[in-house]
Computed example of a mutant assay.
Amino acid sequence: MDIKNYLDSTYLKTNSQAGLSESENEAVAQKFIQEAIDENFKLIMIRPDRVALASQMIVEANSKVLVGTVIDFPEGSSSIIKKLEEAFECIQNGADELDFVCNYEAFKAGKIDLVKDEILKGTQLGLSNNKIVKWIIEVAALNDAQIAELTALIKNVVVANFKPEAYSSVFVKSSTGFFKTENDLPNGATISSITIMLNNASPLPVKAAGGVRTYKEAIEMIDLGVQRIGTSGAKAIANGEETSSKY
């Protein structure tokens, strides 16, 4: 098994989060993009304002690495109109995959129709442009029952509105990796949360993101059944090392 086929190498820090100037952070982003090309990872996950840069670098390198980006990141609380506008701009700039942050706070507040609407329209936009779509549910913000319910809701919207051949192109994803938890509790994928997602997502695939820091942990996730792993420590994991990255 080539674990690199499962790894979405990720760099999503803003300038302030990284403690860097704009030009310094741009250089870090370029380093991640180049590393993804050199290591032949499945995908480079980058913020929307760097999609065009990643696409250009990949084309110039004649690489098959895909470009992924995050939509309405990390809170997921914007209107569906803003989500769609951001996603469409990313498509125009060369994104292959769109990782939408689901409005999980609206879901928790019982605004189910709003959540269904954004899932339907966001998925329609992505699939109609031949893109992979992922819905981030932010497991650290949910209890086990909510993880199951939101995963099933996404699955049910997709199954009710799209043909079976589209199912493999719509993922349920665990985490942004940026959710602030109390007492340093896990803020991303855990065996427990991923198991719940897998039990409720099928026939949709699942992406584990946030908190996968070692090759062993990555293999455990793959053995459970995830089809993608998002990590900012992809090279370390691929080399059998432990990454110090927290997302």
Rank of each mutant, 00 (worst) to 15 (best):
N5P: 14
S9C: 13
S9I: 10
T10A: 05
L12A: 03
Q17V: 08
A18C: 09
E22Y: 14
A27F: 02
V28M: 00
F32P: 04
L43R: 14
L43P: 03
I44N: 02
P48I: 12
A52H: 13
A54T: 05
S55G: 08
Q56M: 15
A61R: 10
N62M: 13
V65I: 05
E75P: 12
S78E: 15
I80F: 05
K82M: 14
K82V: 13
K82L: 14
A87Q: 04
F88T: 15
E89G: 05
Q92A: 00
D96G: 07
D96F: 03
L98A: 11
L98V: 14
N103T: 10
E105G: 11
K108H: 13
V115C: 01
K116D: 04
K116N: 10
G122F: 07
N129G: 10
N130R: 14
N130L: 07
K131H: 02
V133Y: 03
K134L: 02
V139A: 02
L142I: 04
L142A: 05
D144R: 08
V159N: 13
K163A: 14
E165G: 12
A166P: 00
A166I: 12
S169C: 15
V172R: 06
T176M: 10
F179Q: 13
F179V: 15
E182L: 15
N183E: 12
N183R: 13
G188V: 02
T190H: 02
I191F: 07
S192L: 09
S192M: 11
S193R: 02
N199R: 14
A201F: 03
V206W: 06
K207M: 03
A209E: 04
G210R: 06
V212I: 15
Y215L: 14
K216Y: 05
E217L: 10
E217N: 13
A218N: 00
I219Y: 09
M221E: 05
Q227H: 12
Q227W: 01
T231S: 01
G233N: 07
N239G: 15
E241V: 11
Y247C: 05
